[in-house]
Design a protein around this nucleic acid. Sequence first.
DNA 1: GCTTAATAGGCGCCT
DNA 2: CCTATTAAGC
Length: 727
Amino acid sequence: MDLTGLNAPQREAVTTLHGPLLVLSGAGSGKTRVITYKVASLIFDHGVSPYRIMALTFTNKAAREMADRIERLIRLPVRGLLVGTFHSICARLLRIEKVMGGNFTIYDTDDQKKIIKGVLDDLNLSDSRSFSPGDVAGRISGLKNRLITPERFDLQIGNVFDEQFASIYRRYEMKKRKSNGMDFDDLLIEALEMITKNDLLRDKYQEKVQYLLVDEYQDTNRVQYELVRQLSNKHRNITVVGDDDQSIYSWRGADLRNILEFEKAFPDAKTVRLEQNYRSTATILDAANAVISRNKARKPKTLWTEGERGDKLEVHYLYNDLEEAREVTRRIRTRGPKSTVIFYRTNAQSRTLEDELRNAGIPYVIVGGLRFYERKEIKDVLAYLRLLVNPADEVSLARIINLPKRGIGDKAYASLCEFAARLQIGPFEALSRLEEALEFTARERTAFSVFHNLCLALSAQRQETDLVSFVQFVAEQSGYLKYLEESEEEQAGERLDNVSEFINAVGEYVERNDSPTLESFLQEVALLTDMDAVKNDTGEQVTLMTLHAGKGLEFDYVFITGMEDGLFPISRAEEEGGLEEERRLFYVGITRARKWAMLTHAATRRRFGTTTSAFPSPFLDELPEHCIRRIDRTGGSTSFALRDKPAAAPLFNEVRENRQAMPSYEHFSQEDGLLRNGMKVQHPIWGKGTVVMVSGLADNMKATIKFQNDAVKKVMVKYAKLEIVGG
DNA sequence: GCTTAATAGGCGCCT
DNA sequence: CCTATTAAGC
Ligand SMILES: Nc1ncnc2c1ncn2[C@@H]1O[C@H](COP(=O)(O)OP(=O)(O)OP(=O)(O)O)[C@@H](O)[C@H]1O
């Protein structure tokens, strides 16, 4: 195969076939390309069967792209190659090996919270402030990522709180199991158990996986590490690529030690470093390198480019979030929407941007936030399908037993569950033994049996038709479509459209797969994010997403919005290492850009419906001045008056140090860097004026200026870009 | 059991 | 600001 698309170290990584290999390198250095070429070369040059190669990516989209690119490199369709995310590949193995019958339901965060809510109710902890379903879910996931089972947790109980939590955790696991369901963490854990506890299966998969390749290795967690070890244990041909500076998922259990200590875990490992960046301009790289070099916990690396210097990045200081959105929109209008991304730290920030883009008639697509498959109407239809595949699924049953309304309210459902518990069966199974129950009212009994007959009818139809017609049949016969049609709700029309779109998606799935089944469709869908539907940078539309979602992508033009202290870095990131992770996130953001980037700060922003003000992000001070142009459009007084309030003290000591280290501003030419009363200055917006008062020190220096039109403004010297025109 | 109105509470990132 | 949940009324 033609390896001329690779530089020397890349080629070395690709041609190192045997043993453990680590590629640890900075952004845009061609790590993903190494994996792609290596897989292609293994198949094409070395005759390795695609069935013997497993490649793990971070998103489904990355997996699909990789598979496409491999086929293009080989110029042949490839069958049997295992490319996917850890979660999707694990789900697939578990289904194939019929773990939990193979028809398990994958519970997303929403389902998970419902189970936990039920548990809290059972344990009378619902109104305990210490336990909210979301918190509990997060804590449970944290434990599971570290392979701490309820039994193991029991051993480390230290107080009453732990004890209560332990019983929640235990009961959650029990309920989930009763429903034949798995949460996201279970997919990895169960797959790991499967290959560690079952000798036959271990041999099978260790033998099968002749080559294992992992992208974005810096964001793998403990369980994923164990999986990697197990799967590569026989052939030991393991290639991992990653960048410790781009590790941004520690809150989800990602453990940097996996990549930093790879050589310890695999002592015979070879390490390759890629140092040439093929993505960004020199200016972008300078800026990114300067920022990331402030982190202490990292492996230093070199990153250079042969590319041109490119334009300076721009840092805009704006009055509020609306102005920010307008400024971004204005830039996009002149340049066009092609290959442009707008990043933000939190999903809630997208709305203002969206509104402005819509007003300006600029096409855009939002990635993240509410996933398509998380919409209510989609989850409703999915619940019917899940229940038919897995009748033990109590979350789905509870969701649709009275949707549309069938006269089975909370009370009736509760008494069904009680009856079921007495028989030690699930509530769905109980529906087929109604005659044994004495407690139901005549009305309830009829309602139950009508619902039960409906399910039987739907189930019977499943064998009769193809998948698409079946899903259509379910949507109709369940009465759900009718319910939407008759709904008075404003969004009812949109919901109906979404259901049709969902049915189209079933069609696409059927076309894409050799042996489509409802089971595999449901499991695939549970792991899809709407990242996966995003066109690769080609479309004539702007992409909006969080910085986290940007990992691994590239765009010509990058906008990073919301550069405010408390928002980015986010104020909650105060725990150990939190600031460094925020900085890595900033690094990831900047390095997505090929040509140019613009960063915006809004002095005030609407949050929770009220206006809040914030200091500029300390990260803005970490950018070398020769890489950037600062533009202040706050209009002087208003926003910076707010800065006088002591409310928002800098969050991090480290930040404060950085600030002091950074007082060089190009428009600020006086040797001692001080303005004096009576000086004549030029302000970019307000024009010429005379300094009447100076207050504050260093970065907090403020000048009160009387302008020629007699307006008196107080401005932050640091940002106002004052030019001294006479003393 | 169902509908409507009031209000609590949320926003950190995601498989 | 938005949505999701709860209380009150039918
Ligand atoms: N040897 C090469 N010659 C030319 N272009 C290359 C080479 N290697 C990679 N590229 C290009 O550089 C860009 C970045 O490559 P790639 O995505 O593989 O890097 P990466 O290290 O995985 O990046 P990141 O870690 O930032 O996601 C891509 O556009 C890719 O096509």
